[in-house]
Design a binder for these strands. Sequence first.
DNA 1: GATGAATGAGCCTTCATTCAT
DNA 2: GATGAATGAAGGCTCATTCAT
Lengths: 211, 211, 211, 211
Amino acid sequence: MTTDQTSPATGVKPLRADARRNRARLLEVAEAVFTERGTGASTEEIAREAKVGIATVFRHFPTKEALLEAVLVRRLERLAEEGRRLMAETGPTYALFAFFDLVLDQSPVKNAFAAALADAGVDVRAATSEAGRALGEVLTVLLDGAQQAGVVRRDLGVPELTAILVGTCRMLEHLDGHPESAKRARAVVRDGLKARTGSPEEPLPQGGAPS
Amino acid sequence: MTTDQTSPATGVKPLRADARRNRARLLEVAEAVFTERGTGASTEEIAREAKVGIATVFRHFPTKEALLEAVLVRRLERLAEEGRRLMAETGPTYALFAFFDLVLDQSPVKNAFAAALADAGVDVRAATSEAGRALGEVLTVLLDGAQQAGVVRRDLGVPELTAILVGTCRMLEHLDGHPESAKRARAVVRDGLKARTGSPEEPLPQGGAPS
Amino acid sequence: MTTDQTSPATGVKPLRADARRNRARLLEVAEAVFTERGTGASTEEIAREAKVGIATVFRHFPTKEALLEAVLVRRLERLAEEGRRLMAETGPTYALFAFFDLVLDQSPVKNAFAAALADAGVDVRAATSEAGRALGEVLTVLLDGAQQAGVVRRDLGVPELTAILVGTCRMLEHLDGHPESAKRARAVVRDGLKARTGSPEEPLPQGGAPS
Amino acid sequence: MTTDQTSPATGVKPLRADARRNRARLLEVAEAVFTERGTGASTEEIAREAKVGIATVFRHFPTKEALLEAVLVRRLERLAEEGRRLMAETGPTYALFAFFDLVLDQSPVKNAFAAALADAGVDVRAATSEAGRALGEVLTVLLDGAQQAGVVRRDLGVPELTAILVGTCRMLEHLDGHPESAKRARAVVRDGLKARTGSPEEPLPQGGAPS
DNA sequence: GATGAATGAGCCTTCATTCAT
DNA sequence: GATGAATGAAGGCTCATTCAT
C-alpha cells in the first residue's frame, strides 16, 4: 500500500520494472540524504548515491521540490500506517503515547520529519495532500481514543497534537547526545499532555488549525 | 548596553558615525531577512535591503557566517537582558514563566531564535560565546528561582529548559495564525513544567505573569 | 599517445565523444589564454573562448588550479615525448642541444613553460607528478648522452639543466621581436654549457642540430 | 639623487614633511610586499604594513600600476648607482661581473627585479623612462669596459646583457634553496659571457633590442 | 593632507535543470 | 527509458578605486 504500482484506477501508466525499482531506490536514498545533510543536499549527490544518472532523478521527479514532496508523502504514509498498527496492537489508552514515542525514538538526526514539514512551504501542500489527510484521520482516532480513555486532556485537537509532536522533535534534536536530558524533556511534554485531575478543560471547538 | 559607543576600555576602535549606523542597520535588516527568508537568504539581498553596497556587508562582517553569528549574539544579549529585567520586576516565582511568554510572544515568524541557534553549527560556538554564557547565567537564575518557589519541577536544568523553549517556539511556529490552538499548545508545555508531586497549594500563574 | 581514448587498462571511464572534444578544446584554449594573459586570466574568459558554458569548465576541471595543472602536465608530457624523439632521431651528441633549441623556438609568448612551472607552487606537485618524473627521466638521458659525448660540462645535473632552460626562456621572452639579439643570447648559454677543459676537438653544432 | 625632493626645476610642488616620509615608507614597504607576495598583493595590505590609510596610498600613487612603476624606477635607480660605484671601485675589467654578482646575490625571492620588469607591460614604459635610460648608460659603460679588457665576448650589447641578467635571475629563482646547483648555473652563464679564445665574433650592429 | 568607510565590478564555484547520445 | 554532459543563473567573497569626514 505504500507505493502504488498496479492500482488500475490511478490513471498513471504502470512503470517499467527497472523504472519502478529506480523510483523506489531514489526515494529511499533521498530520504536518507535529505535527513542527513539537510534539504540543501544536491540533487546530484542523491543520484550518485542511488547509482542512477542525474537525468533519471528528473525523469521521475520533475523538480527537486517534487522529490522533497514525494519523500515527505512517503513519510506521512508510513506514519499513518504505524499509527494504525499501534492502535490495533496497543489499544486506545496507550496508542497515542506509543505513537509519540515511536516518532521521537527515530534518531533525532534522522528525524527531519519536522524539518521536512516546515521547509520550503512544502508543508502547506503536504497538509492538503492525500497522505496528509490520511495521517490526520489516524491521528484523530488515536487522539480520540486517548481522550476517551481519560489519559489525555480534552482541550487538544489534531492540529495542536501535530504541532506538539513537531516541537518535541525539535527539542530532542537540540538535546542530541544527552539522553538523560532528552528523557526529562520528553517527560515534561508527556505530563503536559495528560488529563489534569480536577481541572476539566472546556472541550475543543471544531475547526481551527492546519493538520 | 547593547552597543558600546563610548566605553573607553573595550579596546575596539570606535567606528565612525556613519559606519556605526550602517553596522546597526545591517544587523537590523539581516535579522529581519534571515528570519523571514531563512538563513539561506543571500548576502546581496541584505545589502540591497539595507541600501548598502555588497562590499560594505563584508567589511563589517568578513563572512556570511560571521553576520549570522552577530545577529544571533545580539538576540542572545537582548534575551539575557530581558530575563534580568523580568527577574527584577516580576520576582522569582513568576519570572521564568514570564520569560517564556515573552520569548514565545515574539511573532513566530520573527522567532527564528531556534532556527538561528540550530543552523550551521553556529550554535556550538554560540554556546561558548560570551553572549551564550551570559544568557545561560540568566536562565540559571530564573530556573533556580522558580524551582525554589516550587512552581517548576526540580528535575530540569538549563539545557532542558533551553531545548524546551526552542521546541515550543517551533510548535507555535507551526500553529502560526491559529491563536487558540497556540494557546492550548502553550498550556501543555506550561503544565508539563509545573512541579508535580504534592504541591497543589501553590497556584500557578494563569497565562503568564503580571507585568 | 598523449590522450588515451581506447586504452583498455587505464581505469578511467572513457568520456563521451563530445566531452572528450570539449576537454581537449578546453586544454588547448586554456593553454593559449594562460600563456597570453597570465595565469590570472579568468576561467570565464577561457570558457567563452572555448565556446563552452562556465560550468563545463568546472565539470572537467573541478578547480582553476586543477585546470592549470592539467595544462602544465600536458606540456610536460609533450616535452618528454619530443625529448625522446630527438634522442632517437638525432643521437646523443646533439639531442640535448636540439631539445634546447626546440623548446626555445616555441614562440616566447607561448612559452610560459617557465611561468607555469614557477607559478603558484604548482611546480612542487608537478615535479612529483608522473609527467614531471617522466620528463625528468628524458632529461637525464639527454644530459647523460651529451656529457658522455663530451659536449656538455660534467658538473651539471638535471636540476641545473631545467633551471637553465627556464631562465633562457625568460631571456628570449625579454628579447622577443629582436631575433638577432636572441640568437646571441642563446649563443652565450650554449657556449656556457659546453665542456670547457681540453676538448677543443669536439665541434659544437652551429645553431641547433640537424633534424 | 635617489629621490628628488628639493630639485627646483622639476616643477613638482615640494611635499610636506610627513607626506614625504609617507611616500618613502610606502615605496619601501611596497617593494618588500610586492617581492614577497608577488605583484598581486593587495593595495590594502601595503597600506596596512606601511601604517597608512589606504587613501594615502592612492593620493601618492593614483593607481596600483603607478605604484608598481615607482617601485621599479627606484630599483633601476639603485642599480644604476651601484653600477657606477662598482665601476669606480673595481675597475673596468671586473666591474661587469661584480655587477652581475651583486644583482644575483639578492635573495632570489626578493629578486622580483625580473618579475617587475616583465609584469603588466610596465617594462615597456620603464625602458623609456629616465631611470631606464640612466641604467642603460651605466650598463653600456660596464659592458664596454669589460669588452675592452677582453673578458667579455664582443658580440653582446646592452639589450642582450639585460636579458641575460633577467634570465639568470629566473634560473636562480628556480634553484632557490639549492646553493650548489645555483653556483653551477651561474658558472654556466659566466663562462658563456667570457670572450672565447680564437673565435673572434663579429662586432655588434648598432640599435637592436630594448634596453 | 590623511583617514577609512563605501562601492561595484569581477572572480571562483555550485546547483537545479535541459539536451544529445 | 537511462545516461551524463552542458548550461547559466546565483552566491560568497576580494580588490582597486572613490568619497565623506
